[in-house]
Design a protein around this nucleic acid. Sequence first.
DNA 1: AACCCTATTGTATAAATATGCATAGATGAA
DNA 2: TTCATCTATGCATATTTATACAATAGGGTT
Lengths: 152, 152
Amino acid sequence: MKNKSERLEAIRTLLTAEQVGSQEELLQKLVALGFDLTQATLSRDLKLLKVMKAPGNDGRYVYVMPNSVPSAPDAGEAFSINGLVSLEFSGNLAVAKTRPGFANGIASIIDEHLPQSIIGTIAGDDTILMVLKEGVTQIEVKNTLLKIIPAF
Amino acid sequence: MKNKSERLEAIRTLLTAEQVGSQEELLQKLVALGFDLTQATLSRDLKLLKVMKAPGNDGRYVYVMPNSVPSAPDAGEAFSINGLVSLEFSGNLAVAKTRPGFANGIASIIDEHLPQSIIGTIAGDDTILMVLKEGVTQIEVKNTLLKIIPAF
DNA sequence: AACCCTATTGTATAAATATGCATAGATGAA
DNA sequence: TTCATCTATGCATATTTATACAATAGGGTT
């Protein structure tokens, strides 16, 4: 498929930025980012990426990328456009996770492009909080966001 | 049991010496060495030892010891250092006050440990804003937080 | 002793993960 | 075009792994 490599890149990014404890959980996040796949495919992707499931210090399990080591053939390329890592909603709020340091930049893009559905954003280092305008649905915002910030 | 540590040691040794692909397989080897246990116990042992299951280059899976890092001198788990001052809720939001400068540090601890109940945090200098996941109650969050960050 | 607490384990089962098989689209050769 | 082939994927399921629960054993304490 045309978006397999994008998906792999998204997985890479997600796993380095967040603590994910199961494939099902990772699947949710990927779906939230607009990818369409099943657990079976994810299992294969993780095998491909050599992602390991490791017990964490806190008693939970975490998926970890093969530490650093771009495995050689990687070369540059990678981290181009997008710092966006995940997107979640809760009521009239949306929280986006970004790569460290990207939050402010992305937030200002959002501010610029979504005045109709978002009344304001606040960004930290790797997190953006968005307050949705009254009456606007989560779906609407998600779709608009994905249109503006492509390259997922 | 009196031989748990022996068993753990045996597991350590086995895994560094051989390519083991499943707990069942490892179980066989341990039994062959005279140990008496079940897969359930083995699963717990592996968790304890922080053994990871990793996809190998040959398309198979291998259990690997947390390379180097004995992780033994772990000392206490809890974050004894405590900058947390107060915690209040409002709808799907929680606001924590911290000692000046502590907000970001504590927020990142929260990010790391409460992905199930908090979808994101934003921290200033002495204030943390947390957005609760939909469906999660204030009480739940408060209890979990207190477990992770004890002693107000 | 009687009681309580903690650690360890097995059993049974839930949860999570891997994969055999079938299918669909893509590519290319004849 | 038509056939062969290859990749990517879903579905269903086998396999594997984690865990809730109950039982047991070993300390301590009173």
